[in-house]
Design a protein around this nucleic acid. Structure first.
Lengths: 124, 124
DNA sequence: TCTCTACTACTAGTGTTGTAGTAGATGGTA
DNA sequence: TACCATCTACTACAACACTAGTAGTAGAGA
């Protein structure tokens, strides 16, 4: 499975990922953009057709649930971005990440610790 | 300016960024995908219309040049990705980056050095 | 039972993307 | 000069994205 999403699909998936599962109405009211109920429904149905979400009956409504994990989508998007926008170099991406966003010292330290752990794991 | 690119546009921009500037023919022959000359031209014209590239006459041909920097596009895409796919957490993104791709120990060390430098610069 | 309401299913219109063909211009060459 | 190669400009068209409306259904309340 190789999920890639359009902008709007990603908005909707985002809500599903954070909520775990949701009805049309729930997604609609949480979306920043003011969209018609039926519009949200359509997006969800598209996602379902593509196999990225599933649904179960819940009373009269449907409760939608993501079938792909956030991590899978993230990994894929990340790979693509490193290739196309950072010349295949994760370092360039990280540079961008730490320089552009105002990351706090604490965050930077956490990132470094993460790398340390990874390095230790690698050596053993 | 807030540049976001479609897949194909990104391919073409990628070549422009690496080459600095290029004619239609140059982009075409460097693209992995086998596209008709006119197809590449069309993409470039679209990009120009959107204001992302400019061109200057060069003999009979046009020489196209990116008007937005790779870093700007990268930064924007990265921000969007962190927000939508990594819940606004750069750490999650980095976790993904180091776990998913087969990064070498050398790369990991370089990444850590980068963070070190950043931390030192921050403290002073 | 009748009506209101909250749903889903279906349909549609407009815009964008991706690909490429045809026409027309221009410069080199036999 | 006549032809060929190389360009750009314009046009086309299918697929998809985005938005939303209309129709139909079924539970809830008078």
């Amino acid at each position: 499975m190789k999920p890639t999403f359009t902008d709007r699909e990603l908005d909707v998936m985002g809500e599903l990922w954070t909520l775990g599962s949701a009805t049309v109405a729930e997604v609609q009211e949480r979306l920043p953009a003011k969209l018609a109920y039926t519009t949200v429904l359509t997006v969800l149905r598209t996602l379902e057709q593509k196999g990225y979400v599933g649904h179960a009956e819940e009373g009269r409504a449907h409760r939608y649930k993501p079938l792909v994990k956030r991590e899978a989508a993230g990994a894929r998007a990340l790979r693509r971005m490193v290739d196309k926008l950072f010349q295949g170099s994760p370092e360039l991406l990280l540079t961008q990440l730490v320089s552009e966003r105002g990351l706090s010292a604490a965050e930077l330290r956490r990132l470094r610790r993460l790398l340390d752990e990874r390095l230790r794991g690698r050596k053993s």
